[in-house]
Design a protein around this nucleic acid. Structure first.
Length: 350
DNA sequence: CTCGGAAAAG
DNA sequence: CTTTTCCGAG
């Protein structure tokens, strides 16, 4: 809007929330602490691109790894980004620098050995975007989710959200518990208050869900056993539109230090993929323009998760700096089944 | 290519 | 604060 640099075919946000073809709710774009409306962030943009089929030749999810994507055409991605930000001089060198800044923030990390390949740390993103302190997010939609977003994540998300929902009121102060601490160099971006006017928060009425949804707001906590088997989502009629469901990918995880996916239950094959939507909708059919598609979904959930909730709470309160290193929000790609008894939380007790 | 430091911009 | 820009180093 301001600079007119946007061009058709480019994912640009129309205003405030919903993006054509995009499955992220507005809160996803509002991201972290943004008092006002902030400019789109690079990782959001990347996500947008990943979401659209039109850009598949430029950037796409890498199969086999959760959240891993490959920039097939660096120059093009840079061009698109430059366009979005009105920075004609943008190039991959610069864009990649920006991407590198995400390493410390733990939003992204590099897949070593693979060129132009990076991996999202969804757990982090989710937190960043969807402060679940009190909201309920709709289930996700396919497409926006990487090939195999752990379904468990979703489930967790659903529950956890609830579970965590009552904690203290976040104050305007940013940063909440649950986030691991980043290196001192750069702290995380902090969580912001729940989406206050967001579309995702609040669930109540039927017409609550505006449109959206793609990103779950998971929090992936502890392993849950009860619903381990994910009953919640039902398999959709078709596989995900953009991303093939695939799971089971072995993951080497090369995380040196504290990496994002420490542990977590995984979900069995079968459901996953992250599709939960019902509309069967596929998006991505447009030639390069926008259109308006909407997806709906309904999420349900929430019923169990009591004990857990407490735990979560505790965790919330208890975690702080002393504790540590692990982020409660991580999940491991490797496990696919949930153990009967969950190991403890990733956090350590005081 | 990839990694970060540094400085600067908005 | 995040990103842009520039840049030396591996």
């Amino acid at each position: 809007m301001q600079c007119g640099c946007v061009t058709p075919g480019l994912p640009a946000l129309p205003g405030s929330y919903w993006v054509p073809g995009l499955a992220f709710p507005d809160w996803a774009y509002k991201a972290e602490s943004s008092p006002g409306s902030r400019q789109i962030q690079l990782w959001h943009f990347i996500l947008e691109l990943l979401q659209k089929e039109e850009f598949r030749h430029v950037i796409a999810w890498q199969q086999g790894e959760y959240g891993e994507f490959v920039i097939k055409d660096p120059d093009e991605v840079a061009r698109l980004w430059g366009r979005r930000k009105c920075k004609p001089q943008m190039n991959y060198d610069k864009l990649s620098r920006a991407l590198r800044y995400y390493y410390n923030k733990r939003i992204l990390h590099k897949t070593k050995g693979k060129r132009f390949t990076y991996k999202f740390n969804f757990s982090k993103l989710i937190f960043v975007n969807c402060p679940l302190w009190d909201l309920r997010c709709p289930p996700l939609l396919a497409g926006a989710v990487p090939p195999s977003l752990p379904s468990q994540l979703l489930q967790n998300a659903l529950l956890s959200r609830r579970a965590l929902a009552e904690p203290l009121g976040w104050h305007r102060g940013p940063r909440h518990p649950l986030l691991p601490e980043a290196p001192e160099k750069s702290r995380l971006s902090s969580v912001s208050p729940p989406c206050m006017g967001g579309s995702c928060c609040r669930l109540g009425g039927p017409e609550e869900f505006p449109r959206l949804a793609a990103f779950p707001c998971p929090l992936l906590p502890p392993p849950l056993r009860e619903w381990a088997p994910f009953p919640i989502l039902h398999p959709p009629p078709h596989p995900t539109p953009l991303l093939p469901p695939q799971l089971g990918a072995p993951s080497p995880m090369e995380l040196p230090k504290s990496e994002p996916f420490p542990l977590g239950p995984r979900c069995p094959p079968g459901l996953l993929g992250g599709h939960a939507m019902a509309g069967g909708g596929l998006m991505g059919e447009h030639p390069g323009e926008d259109g308006e598609e909407e997806e709906e979904e309904e999420a349900d959930e929430g019923q169990r998760g009591t004990a857990m909730a407490q735990r979560v709470k505790l965790q919330l309160e208890g975690r702080e700096k002393g504790s540590s290193r692990l982020s409660p929000t991580s999940f491991t790609p490797s496990q696919r089944a949930v153990p009967p008894q969950p190991p403890g939380w990733p956090l350590q007790p005081p």
